[in-house]
Amino acid sequence: MALLSKKDSKLILDPLADNNPITIQVLGICSALAITAELKASVVMALSVLFVLGAGNVVISLMRNIIPSKIRIIVQLVVVATLVIIVDQVLKAFAYELSKTLSVFVGLIITNCIIMGRFEAFALGNGPWKSFLDGIGNAAGYGIILVIVGFFRELLGSGTLFGFKVLGDPVTKTGLYSIGYENNGFMIIPPAALIVVGIIIWVQRSRNRTLIEEA
C-alpha cells in the first residue's frame, strides 16, 4: 500500500489474526459474547467499538503528555464514557430497536478491557496517527470475531442472516426445512457463544502452532 508504510500497515493487520484482541490477548470478551446471537447486533457492536477505539486512541494520544500518570485511569474513563454516550445517543435516535437489543452492552463498551488495554499499551506512548491505526486495527480484529460468531449463531440457531430467512421457512417447511432440517436452539442460548469462540481459538491455534500456550 502506498498510503501506509510497512510498519503502519502492520499495526492494522497484526491484530486481525496473529495478535487478535479476543483470541490471543483475551481482551474485550465481556461484551463480545452476549450480543452475538444476531448478526446485525454483532455488526453494530463492532462498528461502535471501531468508532470508540479509533477516536479514543487519537484523543488519548494527543493528551498523552499532559495527563498526570496518577490519575490517567480516570481521565481515560471519562474520554471513553463521553464517546460511548455519543454512540448510545446516536443509536437511540436512529436505530431504537437495535439499541433495545443491545441494552446495557453499549454502556459496557466503557469497561471493555480492549479499550483501556489499547490506551495503556499503545496510545499513551505513540503519536496520534499511529494510535489511530492501532485503534482501528484492534477494533477490526475484535469485530471480525464478533461477526464470525454472530454469523454462525444466527445461521445455525435461527436459520437467518440479518433477519433474512436464508435457509427457508421453518413454519411452512420450505428450503432446507422441507428435507427435515431443524434449527439448533442451542446456538441461541448465551453459553453457545463461549463454545463457538473456543472452537475459533482451536482452529486458529491449529493453523498457527506458535500460538499454543504452555500447560
Binding site: 483470541t23 481459538i201 482451536w202 482452529v203 486458529q204 491455534r205 491449529s206 500456550e213 500447560a215
Partner: peptide, 8 residues
Amino acid sequence: PAPLRGLG
C-alpha cells in the same frame, strides 16, 4: 489437545 490448551 495442544491448540486448545489454556484459553480454548
